[in-house]
């Protein structure tokens, strides 16, 4: 197996006047779980579509599992996945969906045992004979994952695989994906959920208006977050504001409200981590009790907002 599962250079894809991808470079190592993240319309689904061979780029080079992507639908063997939903047939049962798909693909074990094993893996064995039309979004997502696993792929391309999953379902999907990666399967997934990316991905690529604005380890992305907004709740809001205003490097945010009733009496500050820690020392020194202190958004989310320009838009809106 090649050490690089996916290698893209200068991928460009247009839909009429709309530039969906604009010179995208991407490297994904074999056995890695790689996250694609970005705001709506950033080009994530288009990129996943190119990886699945649903379309070809207008410009640039794409190599998947060591084979160059040529014409549409002619990609390397061993690639599976879904974009824009798991693609299931509601009039068929879960088992029928998988059996029919296995039979369609051929050279795939579509026996009842093999199908049941897959259904068990994604936690759907109990509903194997239920029509999919009655399934929740999370159940469909899990069945879609099982369908993608038919034929033991070497590259799995998943669009929002955790969408609609409850905590238990999410844990199950995370476990399946982690096991696959451990066995050498490369997984490229898109998600809007930073907690999913943190929990699953070795590396992430952040797309914004068709361009890759960051690509690398998740920890490195977190470092791009810059100064974080923090929410502070104390025994004396007025006193805390006075202390915060005197703390070097810290800025008190006015008008910062999430709209939540829990924000009443809260103070929002922005500054480097050292200044926030200094604030805690000063509050205690002034006899004030810090009851709650934490970042308003996670580091990854802050990095996302900073790199995609959404943070600036939010600031402008205020």
């Amino acid at each position: 197996m090649p050490s690089t599962a996916v290698r893209a250079r200068g991928l460009t894809k247009r839909f009429g006047d709309v530039v969906a991808l604009d010179g995208v470079d991407l490297d994904v190592s074999s056995g890695q779980i790689h996250g694609l993240v970005g705001p709506n319309g950033a080009g994530k689904t288009t990129l996943l579509g190119l990886l699945l061979g649903l379309a070809v780029a207008d410009h640039g080079q794409l190599e998947v599992l060591g084979a160059p992507a040529g014409e549409s639908l002619a990609l390397a063997g061993g690639v599976a996945g879904f974009v824009d939903g798991p693609g299931l047939y509601p009039s068929l049962t879960a088992r029928q969906n998988l059996s029919a798909l296995a039979s369609l693909r051929g050279r795939v074990d579509g026996s009842r045992d093999a199908v049941d094993e897959l259904l068990g893996r994604v936690g759907l064995r109990d509903v194997a004979d239920d029509p999919v039309r009655g399934f929740s979004l999370g159940m469909r997502q899990r069945l879609g994952l099982a369908a993608a696993l038919l034929g033991e792929p070497r590259l799995l391309v998943l669009d929002e695989p955790a969408n609609g999953l409850d905590p238990a379902g999410k844990r199950q999907v995370h476990r399946v994906l982690t096991e696959l990666a451990d066995s050498g399967v490369t997984i490229i997934l898109s998600s809007h959920r930073m907690d999913d990316l943190t929990a699953l991905c070795d590396e992430v690529s952040l797309l914004s208006v068709g361009r890759v604005v960051f690509s690398g380890p998740v920890q490195k992305l977190a470092a791009e977050s810059g100064e974080l907004d923090h929410r502070l709740v104390t025994s004396d809001p007025a006193g805390a504001r006075s202390v915060a205003e005197r703390t070097p490097g810290l800025r008190v945010l006015t008008g910062r409200r999430s709209g939540s009733p829990a924000d009443d009496g809260s103070l929002f500050v922005r500054g480097p981590q050292a200044s926030v820690e200094d604030l805690v020392v000063r509050l205690v020194g002034a006899g004030l009790v810090p009851r709650e202190l934490g970042p308003v958004v996670s580091q990854l989310e802050a990095a996302f907002l900073a790199l995609t320009g959404a943070a600036d838009e939010e600031e402008d809106a205020r």
Binding site: M1, P2, L65, G66, A67, L73, A74, L75, A76, G77, G78, V79, A100, L101, S103, L104, R105, G106, L149, E152, R154, E179, L180, S183, G184, V185
Partner: peptide
């Protein structure tokens, strides 16, 4: 699951019409 041991890139061939017909 064991990963396919293939090392050389292989292309997926299209599914025969008969299988697609049965699927439909």
């Amino acid at each position: 699951m064991s990963v396919a041991a293939a090392t050389a890139p292989t292309r997926t061939t299209a599914v025969p019409v008969l299988r697609g017909y049965r699927f439909e």
